[in-house]
């Protein structure tokens, strides 16, 4: 996984609440078996009309959006389906962070595991970001701080282990593989009828 530390980028604002992962990437695109190539389908039904032409009013279609690496989203972003394809599609477009007042649980976990940073901000900071689309922000994971162009600085909270993994480019699987002894001990202790073998 790529390391994530500090970066500065312009934002795209898509400030709708409860955007579900079916919006982020509709199910009919989920038949692929690779991890790349998903960016083209990001927000497909919002971004393109029935003939596949980009809708000019959709924020991601603005020319300035193409270089943005930060998406400013609404409340409860990423609810619904567990599809990790939603994260791959956001990254495929070029995003490295999503800033919102809140995230759905599974989406937040999926994002962190792929190096897409979910940044929770309060309503006041969110309001400032929403009212200044395209302005630059700096995301500092080390200091857990977001700096806006107007000088506002906002701290954000992130699970310390996820932060450690992101800063060092380590993934969780490596850590889990290192737990072999404890896992084997658990299996010796608890392979009982309650956990039961499934075969």
């Amino acid at each position: 996984m790529e390391r994530l530390t500090t970066f500065t980028s312009t934002t795209v604002v898509f400030d709708a609440d409860d955007v579900d992962t079916d919006q982020v990437i509709p199910a009919r695109f989920l038949k692929g078996t690779a991890r790349s190539g998903w960016g083209a389908h990001l927000f497909a039904d919002r971004r393109y009309d029935a003939e596949g032409r980009p809708r000019p009013e959709f924020p991601l279609n603005h020319p300035a959006a193409q270089a943005a690496r930060v998406l400013v989203a609404g409340r409860n972003f990423g609810c619904g389906s567990s599809r990790e394809h939603a994260v791959w599609a956001l990254q495929g477009f070029g995003f490295r962070a999503v800033v919102a007042p809140s995230f759905a649980d599974i989406f937040r976990g999926n994002a962190l595991k792929n190096g897409l940073l979910p940044v929770v901000v309060d309503e006041a900071v969110h309001g400032r970001l929403v009212s200044a689309p395209g302005s630059p922000v700096t995301v500092d994971l080390e200091a857990q701080k977001l700096s806006l162009a107007d000088g506002t600085e906002a701290g954000f909270v992130i699970d310390p282990f996820a932060r450690y993994c992101l800063l060092n480019g380590i993934d969780e699987l490596q850590f889990l593989l290192g737990q072999e002894e404890a896992i084997a001990a658990h299996e010796r202790r608890a392979d009982s009828p309650i956990g039961g073998s499934t075969s």
Partner: peptide, 11 residues
Amino acid sequence: GTSEVGHVLAT
């Protein structure tokens, strides 16, 4: 998510 599917398969 799919990353976790990998974690569970492996560990």
